[in-house]
C-alpha cells in the first residue's frame, strides 16, 4: 500500500521536475550562461561602439576659442575619463584678453572609446532636442554670449529653428574681470524646446574658471 503510493508520488514528482527543467531550460541556456560575468555578449550591431544599450556617457566637453579678429585658437576641456565617480574630473582654465570677441565651438566626446566617440554629431542630428546655455559669473559677468547657429544649420530638423549653441560668440568687454564661465547642455525630450528655458534633463553642467588678461 505504502509502496504503491510512493510510486505514484515519484512518477508525479519526476514529471513535474522534467517539465520544470524544460521550462527553465531556455533561461539557462540563453541567459545564465556560464561564461563569466565580464565576458561581453556578442551582438550584430556594428555602429554600436559602447556596450549595447548602455546609458550614453559623456566624458569630455571641449570649447575651442578663436579671437574674432584673428589669432591662434586654443581649446579648454572638462574631462572625466572614467565617468561619474572614481577619479575627479580635470578642468582647464579659460584665459582671455579683455576687449576681445571670440568665436567659439563646443564639442562633446566619449573618450572611454577608442577612437573617441564624437557625440557632437548626435547633438547635431537631434538639434531640436538640444540646446547649450552659457552663463558668465562673478567678475566675468560683464562678458556676453551670442548664439551663432540655428537648428537648420545641422540639416532638416523638426524644431522651430531655435539656437543650438554649438557655435557661439563670446564678447569680453574691457571691464570684464576674473570669474567663472558655466556651460549647460539641456536635453529636451517631450518638454518643448523654446530657445530660452532649460529643460529638466541636463546632460552637461560644468563651470570653468576664467582668467582675464587686462
Amino acid at each position: 500500500m505504502f509502496r504503491h503510493h510512493w510510486n505514484v508520488l515519484s512518477i508525479l514528482t519526476a514529471a513535474v521536475f522534467v517539465s520544470a527543467a524544460l521550462t527553465f531550460a531556455c533561461a539557462d541556456d540563453d541567459d545564465v550562461s556560464p561564461t563569466g560575468p565580464t565576458e561581453p555578449e556578442e551582438h550584430e550591431d556594428d555602429d554600436d561602439h559602447h556596450g549595447p544599450g548602455e546609458e550614453e556617457l559623456i566624458t569630455t566637453l571641449a570649447i575651442t576659442l578663436t579671437p574674432s579678429g584673428g589669432g591662434p585658437s586654443y581649446t579648454v576641456r572638462f574631462r572625466d575619463l572614467d565617468g561619474e565617480g572614481g577619479n575627479a574630473p580635470v578642468v582647464d582654465r579659460i584665459e582671455l584678453d579683455a576687449g576681445t570677441d571670440y568665436d567659439c565651438m563646443a564639442q562633446v566626446l566619449n573618450e572611454t572609446e577608442s577612437p573617441p566617440e564624437d557625440i557632437t554629431e548626435e547633438v547635431k542630428e537631434e538639434a531640436e532636442a538640444h540646446q547649450f546655455f552659457y552663463q558668465t559669473l562673478g567678475g566675468f559677468s560683464p562678458a556676453t554670449v551670442t548664439y551663432a547657429d540655428k537648428e537648420s544649420d545641422y540639416g532638416t530638423n523638426s524644431g522651430a529653428d531655435h539656437p543650438v549653441g554649438l557655435a557661439f560668440t563670446l564678447s569680453v568687454p574691457e571691464n570684464a574681470q576674473n570669474g567663472q564661465f558655466r556651460v549647460i547642455l539641456s536635453h529636451f525630450d517631450e518638454a518643448p524646446k523654446d530657445g530660452v528655458n532649460q529643460s529638466d534633463e541636463t546632460d552637461i553642467d560644468v563651470i570653468f574658471g576664467v582668467f582675464v588678461r587686462p
Binding site: 551582438h43 550591431d45 555602429d47 554600436d48 561602439h49 559602447h50 549595447p52 544599450g53 548602455e54 546609458e55 550614453e56 557625440i119 548626435e122 537631434e126 536635453h187 525630450d189
Partner: peptide, 11 residues
C-alpha cells in the same frame, strides 16, 4: 534616451 542602441536594448 541612451542615444545609440539604447532604445532597442535595455540600459
Amino acid at each position: 534616451h541612451a542615444r545609440s542602441g539604447g532604445v532597442a536594448r535595455p540600459g
